[in-house]
């Protein structure tokens, strides 16, 4: 458990001491998030992310025994839709032109992407 552990109470936002993330981790996260970063950016982010994460870690001190994680912010149950095709044009198909209208690389009715090797 990361939260709480090492979080020195109400960590002051400008003075996070728990440097949990190193630059390698920053690069790993960036890669998971598919965002190319330079070394300079990684270095800058290391500090920023540690500052923010050090600060949010104060949540670890909250006693949540017996508390269920919130699921619906306002009590409400999931509605289900009828199995009807194209009942509403806004959520139905048969609008290829609209689907492809903003495509960077439309190709014969497809979206073109750099060749993928599976």
């Amino acid at each position: 458990m990361r939260c709480g552990e090492g979080a020195s109470g109400a960590a002051s936002p400008d003075k996070a001491t728990d440097m949990a993330i190193d630059q390698a981790t920053v690069r790993k996260i960036a890669s998971l998030a598919r965002i190319a970063i330079t070394d300079d950016e990684a270095a800058a982010m290391e500090g920023e992310l540690n500052g923010i994460l050090g600060w949010v870690e104060q949540l670890g001190e909250v006693d949540v025994t017996g508390v269920e994680p919130m699921t619906a912010v306002i009590p409400n149950t999931l509605r289900l839709r009828d199995d009807v095709v194209d009942a509403d044009p806004l959520t139905g198909g048969n609008r290829r032109d609209d689907i492809l209208a903003n495509a960077p690389e439309p190709q014969h009715g497809f979206f073109g992407v750099p060749k993928v090797i599976e």
């Binding site: 999931l78 289900l80 095709v85 959520t91 198909g93 048969n94 290829r96 689907i99 014969h108 497809f110």
Partner: peptide
């Protein structure tokens, strides 16, 4: 609400939701 039938022309059975256009939301089919 897009159709599921097999063998249609490419990208014809695609809704704005299926193409993940900005702001699109899922509503489950009963």
């Amino acid at each position: 609400g897009a159709a599921t039938a097999f063998g249609a022309e490419p990208n014809t059975q695609v809704s704005l939701v299926d193409a993940a256009m900005p702001g699109m939301l899922p509503v489950p089919n009963r």
